[in-house]
Design a protein around this nucleic acid. Structure first.
Lengths: 110, 110
DNA sequence: GTTCTCCTATCGGCTGGCTATATGAGTCTG
DNA sequence: CAGACTCATATAGCCAGCCGATAGGAGAAC
């Protein structure tokens, strides 16, 4: 059933996107590439997951966007974090740390 | 919106259940208590999440069950891992480690 | 000027956890 | 012994959100 790559855990996508944009504005596919890069290929976010997430997060007020031109002179929408987005990045990072710690504890239990 | 406790990440519930039973057979509520214990209270699995998961996992062939009597003389269904369940525990543990590592890398990136 | 790549976009489907509710059986209290 | 409470399992309905498939426009390549 599970063919090749690791799927995202639901709930981690937002954090990865926030983190990817945190370092500077990026357009959609750029975010996708950046996530693949910083996770060393473990996570590959496909368009069908990415764009709905971006729209959702912009709706939530964490991102803002402007049309511009990509490195290849293509029309592209650039996303950056709003103030609320920065806060959200902090919140989700702390929450992830908590979860990761809890899981580590659980898995080393007898 | 989010009141008090951390929600599970989708996909972690199975692993926690497998791990909880891995140490020896338990009945439903016992599994729930054990998860809360080994995650030091971070995860609280409520019946409405637990039982559907148990049925799903039994259906998948990872668990088997028998009716017995609880510590309090109550009718209870005891679950234990099948061989496939042990394999699954291994698989999901490795998968989690991979994910956790990737996330750690991502979050410490510039 | 056809083909390819880049970039954004949407839809339908499905998985799976959550809230709320129900039910039965043993225990405890007065 | 009647009523309340606890333990334990169970289900139905809901909804968020990821996935695969698919589409289409616009610049580049040749």
């Amino acid at each position: 059933m599970d063919q090749n790559q690791t799927n995202l855990l639901q709930g981690t996508l937002d954090l990865l996107i926030l983190k990817a944009i945190g370092a500077g504005e990026l357009h959609g596919l750029g975010i996708s590439r950046r996530i693949e890069q910083i996770t060393h290929g473990t996570f590959r976010v496909k368009p069908g997951s990415l764009f709905p997430a971006l729209h959702r997060m912009e709706e939530a007020g964490w991102l803002s966007s402007d049309w511009g031109e990509s490195e290849n002179n293509r029309r592209a929408k650039f996303y950056r974090l709003t103030k609320a987005g920065h806060r959200q990045l902090g919140t989700e990072t702390r929450q992830w740390a908590k979860v990761a710690l809890a899981m580590a504890d659980a898995l080393k239990a007898t």
